[in-house]
Design a protein around this nucleic acid. Structure first.
Lengths: 158, 158
DNA sequence: TTGATATCATTTGCATACGAATGAGTTTAC
DNA sequence: GTAAACTCATTCGTATGCAAATGATATCAA
């Protein structure tokens, strides 16, 4: 864009010029964001290995609906940290599989109410033990004490 | 699927029947996977606020290329934890913006070599200080000591 | 009451993310 | 030396994830 530099091989210079932290010290592998992304990937992979026919967001929707009962689509999204566009896709797919059913709110005709079907409720109940195992396996590299510490700190970041 | 239950209001029963951990105790909000996903979302959001014209994966690719120099596309993917299909899309977009350039490996004609352009190198150098700030802001809810602990544990999970 | 504002949902467009299938090229085994 | 096995990359299909624009309905204020 701006300044046309000499070439691409002037790395040594920078070791001298720097006053703040040195640019050549930036290690991607050590940045929270990068490791967070990898940890999340690992979890999703563990999830898929144990629950093949449902994704984590889909399961989250079902589990939340089990907790709170009938809710509007947007409200559900807020509860499981999904924006309106994302939650729509998730609910569409759950509906296509007969795990949730939709209806219009009687009074406020904007709202789309979501609820578990009998089959959906059955599925969550059946999957919760597996979900517990997924949590355990994800945390398996840590000791019990480390898990407590980690969860406390992770919660602060989320 | 199986047992046709009475209705949806027999929650109290389950508190009695359970022998293992109770199903009604499953709290989505407390599962690693769910919080990990939220923490990751928060980081991406912080990233976007500071570096609007590049995504975290795109930046990761550039930062890694700066470290290791010319590499094959798949090799780069391995270094930044992306499968072949994903890395292709990322590199395509970086190429379209003139930040990386591609060439064929002379000997092994399967390999697609990726390298930073001068503009690409310039961009990474310029963005690294911002990336440092992103890391800091992401970790801001934690004290220095907590950060050290958290990073150690997170690394074990990833 | 009506006009401005806000909320709920949908749609579009773009960017990861990954499994699975495929094709091209390379290496291994025999 | 050739067939089998492997590797690199591409493509396709599906599923998040989010910004922005839009439409429909509700609410608020004048």
């Amino acid at each position: 864009m701006g300044r046309a530099e000499v070439s691409g091989e002037d790395n040594l210079l920078k070791l001298v010029e720097a006053d703040g932290p040195d640019d050549s010290d930036y290690r991607l592998q050590e940045q929270v964001g990068f490791i967070l992304r990898k940890a999340h990937q690992r979890h999703v992979s563990i999830f898929a290995a144990r629950i093949a026919d449902l994704t984590p967001p889909q399961f989250a929707a079902l589990a939340k609906l089990r907790d709170v009962g009938e809710t509007s689509q947007n409200q559900l999204g807020a509860l499981i940290a999904m924006d309106a566009a994302t939650v729509k896709g998730v609910i569409d797919r759950l509906k296509a599989r007969g795990l949730v059913e939709l209806s219009r709110h009687e009074v406020d005709k904007r709202r789309l109410l979501v609820n578990l079907t009998a089959e959906g409720r059955d599925a969550v109940e059946r999957l919760i033990p597996l979900a517990r195992e997924i949590t355990q396996e994800t945390l398996a590299p840590l000791s019990a004490k480390e898990i407590a510490t980690f969860m406390k700190l992770l919660a602060k970041l989320a």
